[in-house]
Nucleic acid binder design. Structure first.
Lengths: 229, 229
DNA sequence: TAACTTAAAAGTGTCAACAATGTCAGGATA
DNA sequence: TATCCTGACATTGTTGACACTTTTAAGTTA
């Protein structure tokens, strides 16, 4: 599967880049389990590339916060903790709140139309109870608003860095995560505020929305503890 | 000079790490001019290391957002634009606002005492008109609050990633940037709110403070355009 | 048996050479 | 003269070998 990152990253021309994207996908999807140590020789032979290229790819993964490295010890896939997930939600609340505020000022008519289309798709998928694709619709919604902020660094920090982590957790918590009806209503309110160009309200609603997601996730994790992969 | 990053990064044990810190310093201080292309063979011989280690160091610089790389073309120090600086301020407003809110909940008594000490130092330096060290006091203040948030990822994103950019710009805009008396007053209010454990107010005040800094910077840049280094 | 020592094995960091790509200057053609 | 081709040069990407560190396991001693 290909990840719709919304923010266009150029086609991978170099081996290290292809490797990076390949590994990133494997990690996000869970093919490589969380917390696993990365053996450079092993992976290099597995992918048929030299260790140099692999190390460069690992360096990029480190930037995405998907692996951590210790000198002379090695790299390992990041772990998995409720506390970290809560931290991410807090950061999202702040940054996406700002993104929504800016989007209310800068979003284009085309993007707004696209946003409405995403909402419509989301509505249909709820009616048909397609849980899996609702998650995509949710991501697309958030990406679109972030994109609308027109703050290029904010876009990069969110879409490129933070949302890899969001996906990392989302793929490992698939089960029982659908507060979609509620989320859909909240999305609607946010878009309305943006349409009215009410940045203050858009920010407030977005923060509320993300906080509600966080509380929901926390409840799920406390009551139905996930297995460590 | 050594940068007090507040968030402890481990001692550089590997050559690439030392190189990274060295280059980072050179860039931030302005020894390497903004926008300059990096020649791998040139730098490698200059520092007496192999190109491999240098490339790893450049990779890390890319994570700090201090250089940009294009495949088969090369790396260059980031440019310098008012627009980008404004984007950074917007992000700081969101993230440091959140940091202040969290600090009001989680900061320790020791950290609060330290914060008060920083304020006192700041006050003295204003009285003695030591413009240069006031900048350090300002950075220390912000670092201390971020640290108090106890959100480890937020701390890393701000101290490690974003504040390198802040320093990058600050070193190139030294001239005529002292709204210290005003900033000092704002700092005081923020600390008071944190002491009262009033997170809502702490966030509001921090956002106001950063927005004021932004407006001030924008005015300076519009009226006294800086030379491109 | 348990703890310490030591040597082998595995893994990471570093390097220099090779391959592929991009850049630039000179000349040919319209 | 301006544009396009062409080939030499310079730079980046990639690789395999070497050096150093960590880990493991065997062996020794109390």
């Amino acid at each position: 599967m290909a990840f719709s990152t919304a923010c266009k990253l150029q086609e991978p021309v170099t081996i290290a880049d292809k490797l990076f994207l390949d590994l990133r996908r494997s990690i996000l999807v869970g093919e490589i389990p969380a917390g696993k140590k990365i053996s450079e020789p092993e992976l290099a032979t597995a992918y048929g590339v030299s260790r140099g290229s692999l190390r460069e790819a690992i360096g990029k993964l480190e930037n995405c916060n998907l692996v951590t490295r210790k000198p002379n010890i090695g790299a390992r896939i990041i772990g998995f903790s409720t506390a970290q997930l809560m931290e991410i939600y807090q950061i999202r609340e702040a940054m996406e709140g700002m993104a929504a505020r800016l989007a209310a000022e800068h979003i284009t008519a085309d993007e707004l139309a696209h946003l409405r289309k995403i909402l419509e798709r989301h509505r249909q998928e709820i009616a048909q109870r397609q849980d899996s694709s609702q998650q995509d619709a949710d991501l697309d919604f958030h990406f679109c608003i972030i994109q609308g902020s027109k703050n290029s660094r904010l876009i990069r920090m969110l879409c490129q860095d933070l949302y890899d982590l969001v996906r990392f957790y989302r793929f490992r918590l698939k089960s029982g995560f659908h507060r979609s009806e509620q989320a859909f209503q909240e999305h609607n309110l946010i878009v309305s505020a943006i349409e009215r160009r009410d940045g203050e309200m858009a920010e407030t609603l977005m923060r509320h929305h993300i906080r509600a997601s966080r509380d929901y996730a926390r409840n799920m994790l406390e009551n139905v503890p996930q297995e460590e992969s």
